[in-house]
């Protein structure tokens, strides 16, 4: 599903964020990416949805080599990869339903389809009753669930989550991870970037540790090893 081969990323002028990273993530996997602050986790995530382009090496998603992706092709890629961030990125002036509908509208989906999909994804994240609330009327965990729901509207094969629990307390974090596992159980590949030792240990899934831009370890059923 995701193949990285000798990928490097240099931020000008001299920050070598990633060095010679090779990875193979199979369809349906749930992979955690861990590492210290500044080790290059976010950079790796950004490469997957073409927010950044690699300086060297190749990134293949499905059979699509996105290392030299053209700007006009990026929207296509983004509809196949859902993304979730620490800060939710919800529009404060729009309701939950409108925030989710927005992702479909800007992709040119028809009203009929939008009215179908929005309740579906809200149901998946368990927020069917909050469709008319504004983000500020929701808890952090609920807001993150809205952003996950939005990431699901195009039925992506891959979901990339960069520190989705970074702003949440333990209980809400746990809910979010449960939700990701639930989504994973339907076959969606999950790439989870996280700092949280407890989460990683509890997951008992594949863990890739990044250290100074390099893959330091890659273990099935791994544990969080960094201090």
């Amino acid at each position: 599903m995701i193949k990285l081969k000798n990928v490097s990323k240099l931020y000008k002028p001299e920050t070598q964020a990633l060095k010679d990273v090779s990875l193979h993530i199979k369809a349906g996997e749930f992979v955690s990416i861990v590492g210290q602050s500044g080790s290059g986790k976010t950079t790796l995530a950004k490469l997957l949805f073409a927010e950044e382009k690699p300086t060297g090496g190749s990134i293949v998603i499905g059979d699509w080599d996105i290392s030299r992706i053209r700007r006009s092709e990026i929207p296509m890629l983004r509809r196949q990869i859902g993304v979730v961030f620490q800060d939710f990125k919800l529009l404060q002036r729009k309701t939950v339903g409108e925030n989710i509908a927005f992702a479909l509208q800007v992709a040119g989906d028809r009203g009929k389809r939008i009215r179908e999909v929005v309740p579906q994804v809200l149901k998946i994240v368990g927020l069917s009753d909050k469709i008319d609330r504004y983000p500020r009327q929701l808890s952090g965990g609920e807001q993150q669930r809205v952003s996950i729901a939005r990431a699901l509207v195009h039925r992506p094969k891959i979901l990339v989550a960069d520190e989705p629990t970074g702003n949440l307390d333990t209980i809400h974090s746990h809910e979010i991870i449960q939700l990701l596992k639930h989504i994973n159980s339907y076959g969606t590949t999950i790439v989870l970037v996280t700092h949280d030792r407890d989460i990683v240990n509890a997951l008992n899934k594949r863990v890739i540790t990044i250290q100074e831009g390099e893959v330091a370890s890659d273990m099935e059923h791994g544990k969080y090893k960094l201090s």
Partner: peptide, 17 residues
């Protein structure tokens, strides 16, 4: 800017932005 950022993330076409 927020809206535009989100539009890009969720795969809005260039001309839509």
């Amino acid at each position: 800017r927020d809206e535009i950022g989100i539009m890009k993330l969720v795969g809005a076409n260039d001309w839509f932005i």
